[in-house]
Each structure stands twice: as C-alpha cells, then as structure tokens.
C-alpha cells in the first residue's frame, strides 16, 4: 500500500539523518529518487529550492511535498508522521537517559565520528545535483551540446557571493534564478 511505503521511506529518512538540515538530503535522494522514483532529480532540486525559501526543515518539507504528489493529503500525513516518529523516540529515550545518568558522552562520541561521514554524503548529494546541471547527460564529458556554460557561470558567481561577500543563500539563489530568466527572456524576445 502506498501510504505504508511513504511512511516507511520517510521513517528511514527520519531515523538515519544525523546532523540536521542538509544531512537529510542524501537520505531523501536515496529513498525518493533512487529507490521509489517518486521524484525526478529536477523535481528534487526544485524542492530544495522551495525548502530554502519557506520556513521548516527540509525533511518535513520533502515528506509533505512527496506525500502530497504521490497520494494527496493522507499521503503527506503518512510521510510526515514517518519522518517525525524516529525523532520522538530517539529524543525521548536520550532525554530519559540524560535525566537518569546526566552523561551523553557516548552519544557525543558517536556524533563526532558521524560528522565527517555526513559531510561526505552531503557532498555526494551536491555532486548529484550539479553534474546534470553542468552536463546535459549527467556525465562529465565536454562534447558540444553536452556541456552547459551558463550554469557553470552562475555557480562560480554564486560561490563568490556566498564565500567572499557572505551573502544570504536565499538571495544568492534568487539572483541565479533572475539571471536565467533575464537570459531566457532575452533569447525569446530579442
């Protein structure tokens, strides 16, 4: 049944995304795109964009969006519930252990070693988004028609604004979008 599938997929996303925010990206990608094909990579990238511009965690946004696209409001509720349930259980157990023993060193040790793995997995998600943006067929070959110069230009500009000018990420993304709209309008109307 689709509701159970949605629930279980997002249960896994909720249970294994340590580190918050971007850490959920590789897990969402693995379940929603690679395993169940509920979204295309382009939809997924749009979803991240939308998530950045609306309040709320990416995982919850993804659960609501995917659930709704696949099975309407009941689908979004099943997915969101799946996403939140592991949090409820883990947080409660940890809080209970904490009030009992006042010692979180094991959990913090585990977290310390998870952090580099999370960085690596976010990098993978980033590469999965950038490759098809830079190359039409998604593989890094510089044949004519495959390599897209404009997105690379936007990317370099965005990196500059983010790193050197410390600009707000949402503004940076909107600027990239506006640049593309301007370009396409110019091509269409001139």
């Amino acid at each position: 049944m689709i509701y159970i599938k949605l629930f279980l997929a997002f249960l896994q996303i909720g249970a294994f995304s340590f580190g918050g925010g971007y850490a959920a990206l590789p897990l969402i990608q693995a379940q929603v795109i690679d395993r169940y094909h509920w979204l295309t990579l382009a939809d997924f990238t749009d979803l991240i964009t939308i998530s950045q511009m609306t309040p709320g965690p990416i995982a919850i946004n993804a659960a609501t969006f995917v659930g709704n696209q696949i099975a309407g409001v009941p689908g979004s509720l099943a997915a969101t519930l799946g996403c939140v349930l592991p949090s409820c259980i883990f947080v409660t157990v940890l809080a209970w252990l904490y009030t009992k023993y006042r010692n979180l060193s094991l959990m913090q040790g585990i977290l310390e070693s998870l952090r580099p793995a999370v960085v690596a997995m976010i990098a993978t998600a980033g590469a999965a988004i950038l490759l098809p943006t830079f190359f039409l067929d998604g593989t890094p070959s510089f044949q004519a028609g495959n390599f897209q110069a404009r997105p690379v230009f936007y990317f370099v500009g965005a990196m500059f604004l983010l790193r050197k000018k410390k600009m707000d990420p949402v503004k940076v993304m909107v600027l990239c979008g506006a640049a593309e709209v301007a370009w396409q309008s110019a091509v269409k109307f001139l």
Partner: peptide
C-alpha cells in the same frame, strides 16, 4: 527559468556548506 537558474545556486549553497 527561475527554478532552472536556481539549480546552480542550490549546488553552490550545498558545496559551500560542505
């Protein structure tokens, strides 16, 4: 156009976080 241009921006935000 917005969404397709923003893809490069999202990629940059993620790489910056990494």
């Amino acid at each position: 156009g917005m969404l397709s241009g923003m893809r490069a921006g999202v990629g940059a935000v993620i790489i910056s976080v990494v």
